[in-house]
């Protein structure tokens, strides 16, 4: 039976309306507009019509074609919306179920803390300087006013290979080497690295540890500048609420010399069990570089002066991460290292 155009229009319109998914709709489209589709066939008949009918017939069919195409496009839109709505409605998962282990390795916590320290001081214009861990007696002691027989030497009890060669007891030798290399101040450097002292291992100290020392040499530097630098560093690492105090102390290589303390992060300086009710935690030593040390580094102390400070990276990490035993850093127990 051959449908007339109007019948065809109505018939297919209702077919389009009842399609249930995009696939069915596609089948309808093919039945209409495919190579032997109903609409295609009607259009194919046009050239066989008498000349005067052709254009009316064409116009009529074209109108129907557009209506059907419009109906298909509209239905396609509806079906797509339904399909997407269905996806989001039916595919809920248990989001509390855990993901698989990532298997990512960890950076050592001392690397992380060292990196933070370097970043903070680089932002003030300090450069990292490195030096050998096996040092000469001169760089490790003599150049720093720690002459043989000096009563302070016992605080730097060292491991020796020969009377002249030892494991550096601090990174201060790097300061001397840097002065000799750079020659012309301004010098703003930090010297991170491993150090060694002949102390039996215990919870608070080890015969091997890591330090960062800082050195500034410029014109007319002051104790206030040193305090400001330490405060900037501590606040950048631990938060703006921290305070720093310097307490007079003694090191042969600085004059005046200080210990520097930081307010306890647990009690904010009020005093608690973890700071032994002092409110302050000892962090490191600092001072104005001794003029003889500047001379030993080849710097003229009448023209330049400077300040220096030093502290243990482990100590900083212990304060920051509440680690109570320094030995954990060097034991390589993954249960510890993976916490950071």
């Amino acid at each position: 039976m051959i449908h007339g155009p109007d019948e065809l229009l109505n018939d297919y319109k209702s077919q389009i309306a009842v399609t249930r998914d995009e696939k069915e709709l596609e089948q309808v489209r093919v039945a209409l507009f495919g190579n032997s589709g109903a609409m295609t066939n009607l259009i194919k008949e046009i050239p066989g019509l008498p000349k005067e009918e052709r254009s009316d017939r064409g116009r009529l069919l074209n109108g129907i074609k557009q209506q059907l195409e419009g109906a298909i496009a509209a239905r396609l839109g509806e079906l797509r919306v339904e399909r997407l709505a269905d996806i989001v409605e039916t595919e809920a998962i248990d989001i509390t179920f855990p993901g698989p282990p990532l298997g990512q390795g960890h950076l050592h916590v001392l690397t992380q803390v060292r990196r933070q320290i370097e970043t903070v001081l680089e932002s003030l214009g300090y450069q990292v300087e490195l030096g050998p861990e096996v040092e000469t007696e001169w760089y490790n002691f003599e150049a720093l006013n720690l002459t043989a027989g000096h009563p302070a030497r016992e605080n730097w009890d060292s491991f020796y290979f020969t009377p002249e060669l030892l494991l550096r007891a601090h990174t201060s030798p790097v300061q001397i080497r840097a002065m000799q290399r750079i020659k012309e101040p301004p010098i703003y450097i930090i010297t991170p690295g491993r150090c060694y002292r002949r102390d039996a291992p215990e919870a608070t100290r080890l015969p091997y540890f890591s330090q960062v020392e800082g050195l500034a040499i410029d014109r007319a530097l002051t104790v206030g500048d040193m305090k400001g630098t330490l405060l900037y560093m501590i606040q950048s690492l631990y938060g703006i609420e921290r305070k720093v105090r310097v307490r007079p102390s003694y090191f042969p290589f600085t004059e005046p010399s200080f210990e520097f303390d930081v307010t306890c992060g647990i009690c904010n300086g009020m005093g608690c069990k973890s700071c032994r009710h002092k409110g302050w935690l000892e962090v490191g030593g600092c001072g104005m570089v001794h003029p003889q040390v500047l001379r030993n580094g080849g710097i003229d102390p009448t023209e330049w002066n400077g300040y220096a400070w030093g502290f243990g990276i482990e100590r900083m990490a212990m304060l920051k991460h509440d680690v109570d035993d320094i030995r954990l850093f060097y034991e390589s127990d993954l249960r510890f290292l993976e916490q950071f």
Binding site: R194, Y208, L334
Partner: peptide
């Protein structure tokens, strides 16, 4: 740090061991 990043991605954890 570029090497550390690769090591971490490959599942390796960094250690610091005594030199002595």
């Amino acid at each position: 740090d570029a090497a550390r990043q690769v090591m971490a991605g490959a599942g390796f954890t960094e250690t610091w061991n005594p030199a002595l």
